[in-house]
Computed example of a mutant assay.
Amino acid sequence: MSSRTPRSPRARATSAACPCGLPATYDDCCGRLHRGEVRASTPEQLMRSRFSAFAVHDEAYLLRSWHPTTRPPGVDFDPALRWLRLDVIGSTGGPLNVEGTVEFRAHYTERGHAGELHENSRFVRHDHAWVYLDGLAGNRPGLSV
């Protein structure tokens, strides 16, 4: 883990736009999942909430929404990395499925340089909740959203 103390996700202004890209405030969109008020009903909703968790540095949510067989011991938030935008290209799996996928592009800046992560992520149900299993990243190995 980085020695830098991550900011609390609750410090984010509740009226700010949600980082996941949907037309809602953070508080009304991914904030509800981060606070544990609701669970993701589809792999895409979980993917969007995980992207937002990376954007607001919510390590607890990221670890909670990661499958125990692939979950790392912690999340190291790089202070030079800022997540900007999520584009969902396609997804499979719905409320009645037990597995699904999400293909996405996550746009970021790192030390002032623009970049994007293109990944095909796999999600499964674990203990009656969608969780991130793994993904195949196209251009930024070792970083999974």
Score class of each variant (00 low, 15 high):
residue 107 H to Q: 10
residue 68 P to C: 12
residue 56 V to E: 00
residue 121 S to W: 06
residue 91 S to E: 14
residue 68 P to I: 13
residue 138 G to H: 03
residue 141 P to N: 08
residue 39 R to K: 11
residue 95 P to S: 13
residue 9 P to S: 08
residue 107 H to L: 11
residue 92 T to M: 11
residue 42 T to M: 01
residue 30 C to Q: 05
residue 142 G to E: 05
residue 80 A to R: 08
residue 93 G to M: 01
residue 27 D to G: 09
residue 99 E to Y: 13
residue 99 E to G: 12
residue 73 P to Y: 10
residue 98 V to G: 14
residue 111 R to C: 12
residue 11 A to H: 11
residue 89 I to V: 15
residue 102 V to C: 08
residue 77 F to G: 07
residue 45 Q to C: 06
residue 85 R to W: 06
residue 134 D to V: 07
residue 4 R to T: 14
residue 68 P to D: 13
residue 98 V to C: 14
residue 97 N to M: 12
residue 46 L to N: 02
residue 123 F to T: 11
residue 90 G to Y: 03
residue 107 H to V: 08
residue 38 V to E: 01
residue 86 L to D: 05
residue 39 R to Y: 12
residue 11 A to C: 12
residue 42 T to E: 08
residue 64 R to F: 12
residue 123 F to Y: 15
residue 40 A to I: 02
residue 43 P to D: 00
residue 138 G to Y: 06
residue 41 S to G: 12
residue 42 T to A: 03
residue 45 Q to M: 09
residue 4 R to Q: 13
residue 47 M to V: 09
residue 31 G to E: 01
residue 91 S to G: 11
residue 128 H to E: 15
residue 77 F to M: 03
residue 32 R to G: 12
residue 80 A to F: 07
residue 110 E to R: 15
residue 140 R to C: 09
residue 135 G to A: 01
residue 14 T to M: 14
residue 7 R to Q: 09
residue 98 V to H: 15
residue 37 E to N: 08
residue 97 N to Q: 13
residue 108 Y to G: 02
residue 65 S to P: 04
residue 7 R to S: 11
residue 137 A to T: 15
residue 19 P to M: 09
residue 10 R to Q: 15
residue 116 E to Q: 14
residue 126 H to I: 00
residue 47 M to G: 05
residue 105 R to P: 01
residue 112 G to N: 09
residue 16 A to V: 13
residue 68 P to E: 13
residue 5 T to W: 00
residue 40 A to R: 03
residue 44 E to F: 00
residue 116 E to D: 10
residue 79 P to Q: 08
residue 6 P to Q: 10
residue 88 V to A: 05
residue 42 T to V: 02
residue 131 V to Q: 01
residue 139 N to T: 01
residue 12 R to Y: 15
residue 81 L to S: 03
residue 40 A to L: 03
residue 114 A to T: 10
residue 113 H to N: 14
residue 49 S to A: 13
residue 71 R to Y: 02
residue 9 P to G: 04
residue 94 G to N: 02
residue 65 S to A: 11
residue 143 L to H: 07
residue 88 V to D: 04
residue 24 A to C: 13
residue 15 S to F: 14
residue 5 T to E: 10
residue 83 W to S: 12
residue 35 R to L: 05
residue 112 G to F: 04
residue 69 T to L: 11
